[in-house]
């Protein structure tokens, strides 16, 4: 069997297209590359959707934490503490068993027990809390002069927020938010190790990597492949977010721009 046939059979295995049975023997390099790569589809799915939806909730949470209304402020602060103060791993477990016990109540909860929705909700809330804290920090450091200038132009309320406060907040928060995006993609590897079942062995990249490591007793091939894919993904995220960073900073002179500075990888 040539490598192209393997790619055709297993390239989309993680979403249920192609060969049903996972390889039983041989475990060639080509098979490992293809299956682990196919698992990356799930990592990208979880990461992209959670990041895009979490962005809006994060803005809301940051504004809530900075608001003068004590109810909103307390609620946002508790939300952030709840999701930042506990391990994501435990959050996944708790959410899975919560959805599982809600299942008998109504069939509406059926999809929640599968990873594509249940885990996505947890990741969405989690990233909203982490980015909410980042945005809150940036909101606190918006220069007073910018707001005063907006006031002088007669802007207030929504238009001031939309045209001055929000873009400046994003600009200041962007380097930290890039890190958050990278960690979120890394965190997606926890999904299939935390209760959520991999239905018909359709799992993410780490699921397949550990499948191969278990079968061959040789961790030195599948995990470096996984690392290779993730480094590639990280580079893509960095360049994409770098482009956005450039756009957010385009009105500033060169030396005043916020630099992209990457911090190390952190578990949540």
């Amino acid at each position: 069997m040539s490598c192209w046939e393997t790619v055709a059979d297993y390239g989309l295995r993680s979403i249920g297209i192609g060969e049903r049975l996972l390889p039983r023997e041989g475990y060639t390099l080509c098979q490992q590359f293809t299956l682990i790569g196919s698992g990356m589809i799930w990592n990208i799915y979880f990461g992209v959707l959670a990041l895009c939806s979490g962005f809006f909730l994060a803005t809301a949470v940051a504004l809530g934490k900075a608001s003068k209304n004590p109810v909103l402020r307390k609620a946002s602060a508790w939300f952030i503490f709840l999701f930042r103060g506990s391990p994501l791993f435990i959050q996944f477990f708790f959410a899975y068993f919560l959805f599982l016990s809600l299942k008998p109540i109504s069939p509406i909860f059926d999809p929640f027990t599968s990873a594509w929705l249940g885990a996505l909700i947890v990741l969405f809330l989690n990233t909203a809390a982490y980015s909410g804290e980042i945005f809150y920090g940036a909101l606190q450091s918006v220069p007073r002069g910018d707001i005063e200038a907006a006031d002088a132009y007669g802007m207030s309320g929504w238009s001031r927020f939309k045209r001055v406060t929000w873009p400046t907040m994003l600009r200041l928060a962007w380097p930290a938010y890039t890190n958050e995006a990278i960690f979120l993609f890394h965190a997606t590897t926890l999904v299939y190790f935390s209760g959520f079942p991999a239905w018909q062995q359709r799992g993410d990249a780490l699921y397949y990597a550990s499948f191969f490591a278990d079968k061959t007793f040789n961790p030195f091939i599948p995990y470096p492949i996984l690392a290779f894919y993730f480094i590639l993904l990280t580079l893509c995220i960095i360049s994409l977010f770098g482009l956005i960073n450039r756009r957010l900073n385009r009105h500033l002179p060169q030396e005043a721009r916020t630099k992209m500075k990457l911090k190390l990888n952190i578990i949540r």
Partner: peptide, 23 residues
Amino acid sequence: YIAVVRGVPDIAFFLFFVIALDQ
């Protein structure tokens, strides 16, 4: 050593090192 942890999910390190160290 410092750089290698960046860019790779930590959980992969955990799964990798336990088998690798044992072997």
